[in-house]
């Protein structure tokens, strides 16, 4: 799709806005609809649009593949870490009250941090999904035997 001038220009315009809106949904989730899950999806969608326009290789130069795998796990680990931190500071698992001086500030800090964990995981997993699908597509195009196999399979099905 890289030769479509309109798509390129419009994508260049909206991708930063997508990401900004993702950050807004992430960090304003306490006050307005939103949170880590939706923000992660928006962030992932912005990257997917980038890949659709500029290709997977350019997309993976923005976010290295190894980083995607690590981020997917790090998000969940951050979530667990906040939970264990509550235990270490004398509370229960995922009890935020002990994280800060006043319970309200502690709750807000805890909520923001776990939502960040969710957001990072969701964004990374969405990118991982799309990377896998694009890879598979490229593989199927080059590997004629796979197509052959699929057609055989369909014949068996019918």
């Amino acid at each position: 799709m890289s030769d479509h001038a309109i798509l390129r220009v419009v994508a260049r315009l909206v991708i930063p806005l997508f990401m900004l809106f993702g950050l807004y949904v992430q960090f304003h989730g306490e006050y307005s609809p939103g949170g880590g899950f939706q923000a992660g999806v928006l962030f992932g969608a912005a990257w997917i649009l980038f890949v659709l326009i500029y290709g997977l290789d350019t997309g993976l130069r923005v976010i290295p593949e190894a980083l995607i795998y690590n981020l997917a796990c790090l998000g969940v680990l951050l979530y667990c870490l906040i939970g264990v931190l509550g235990v270490a500071l004398g509370g229960h698992f995922l009890n935020f009250d002990v994280l800060w001086t006043t319970p309200k500030a502690a709750q807000q800090a805890g909520i923001i941090l776990v939502e960040l964990g969710v957001g990072v995981t969701v964004a990374a997993v969405v990118m991982l999904f799309f990377t896998c699908f694009v890879r598979r597509r490229a593989l199927n195009k080059t590997g004629a035997d796979t197509d052959q196999w699929r057609e055989d399979n369909h014949d068996h099905d019918s």
């Binding site: 989730g29 306490e30 006050y31 307005s32 609809p33 939103g34 949170g35 899950f37 998000g75 969940v76 979530y79 667990c80 939970g83 698992f93 995922l94 935020f96 309200k104 500030a105 709750q107 807000q108 805890g110 909520i111 776990v114 939502e115 964990g117 969710v118 995981t121 969701v122």
Partner: peptide, 22 residues
């Protein structure tokens, strides 16, 4: 002190559920 009820329930009251979702 969080004004979005849904965010507070998901991330604080029902934190372990959300961990499961992640």
């Amino acid at each position: 002190g969080v004004s979005n009820l849904v965010a507070a329930i998901l991330a604080s009251y029902r934190s372990i559920d959300t961990l499961g979702e992640a």
